[in-house]
Design a protein around this nucleic acid. Sequence first.
DNA 1: AACATAACCGGACCAGAGTCCGTTTGTCTA
DNA 2: TAGACAAACGGACTCTGGTCCGGTTATGTT
Lengths: 200, 200
Amino acid sequence: MNDELLRVLSRPPRERADAARNRARVLDAAARLFTEGGVEALTVDAVARAAEVGKGTVFRRFGDKSGLVAALLDERERRLQERIVFGDPPLGPGAPARDRALAFFDAYLTHLADHLDLVRLSETAAPGARYRVGSYVFWHRHLAILCADRPDPDHLAHVMLGMVDADLNAELREHGYSWDRIRAGVAAAVGALFGPTAAP
Amino acid sequence: MNDELLRVLSRPPRERADAARNRARVLDAAARLFTEGGVEALTVDAVARAAEVGKGTVFRRFGDKSGLVAALLDERERRLQERIVFGDPPLGPGAPARDRALAFFDAYLTHLADHLDLVRLSETAAPGARYRVGSYVFWHRHLAILCADRPDPDHLAHVMLGMVDADLNAELREHGYSWDRIRAGVAAAVGALFGPTAAP
DNA sequence: AACATAACCGGACCAGAGTCCGTTTGTCTA
DNA sequence: TAGACAAACGGACTCTGGTCCGGTTATGTT
């Protein structure tokens, strides 16, 4: 019984083969449905049907709809995360914090422009969904570290991320804002929030 | 037929008596349900039943659930709006723009703290709901005017209002942020966004 | 007072998210 | 290879927001 204990403690609860297969099927089906019919076609029932899987399976694997969509975005976001951690400055390590933050928002807005509908769906599918998705936590920590010398970095990071809220930006777009205009506004605000540049 | 034209042009499409009566009943029932069972008890069916009114009536009067909740908040918000337009400085006219903005956020955060659940409900009931509610438009215009001399006042106003997003602040509260901490963070950010104070 | 009509009413109906639970299946041990 | 059991399965079910439409009623005109 001792080795059972050991097993339990050390086991990173591996995913069963059928579970993994179904995760892939669901993700696949979701991606297909989205490219075919846009965000409108992306209902949980339709995804389950297209994946030839029960609806319960979708929820067990992804928690809720917002989780499913987040998983759909995961690969793209992971790429951006890697560029932040390992990539070249100014996005990656090495550049001054302010420049890194500006580079981040520039890159993130590109991501947002490319996937506005999906990001919006994942952020509005449930109240508070935005702040629980793994990637939000990543962006938040990154920014909080970048402005570590400000009074409340944690809060400031949330405030900054508010500027790239998908719902807000979708609304701005509908009101005729160009992405360039949004980019400029965000850059200006980020600059201001980082405080005045050290005068030469 | 000329006076018919006149009538049509001048008529502010008055509300029928039964319509007005039902609006009051619904609002009443909603308020009662909320004080009794909190935001959880506030389903459209329950409201309609409590108001002894068909469900369709609720939707015809208020558009959607978020509209109903917004109407519930309307009175309180109207009071704040009056203080902004007619009240004493620094909230009302007369104080420097920066001070007025700071006073606004302070007052708004008080409002938010008092009605967090309702505001959150009205903002998350539907995607984009937040930006369509009348009061948001009011706050936005007010702020945009206050920072009229900045490069993109319209966008900047949206950014600032992002800091008092109900969903965000509900999340912050759940993570243990005190309202004082939030207040301080918002004040600092608003100050920074208004640019450095003119040095004496 | 009778009429015309536009606004309003109610509740049956629909769609989509999320839950539940009896059944099946993968995996690990003996 | 047989057996035990946790994990996963699937689809019927519930709950809630929102739509629709045939019938009703307030209102203003004649």
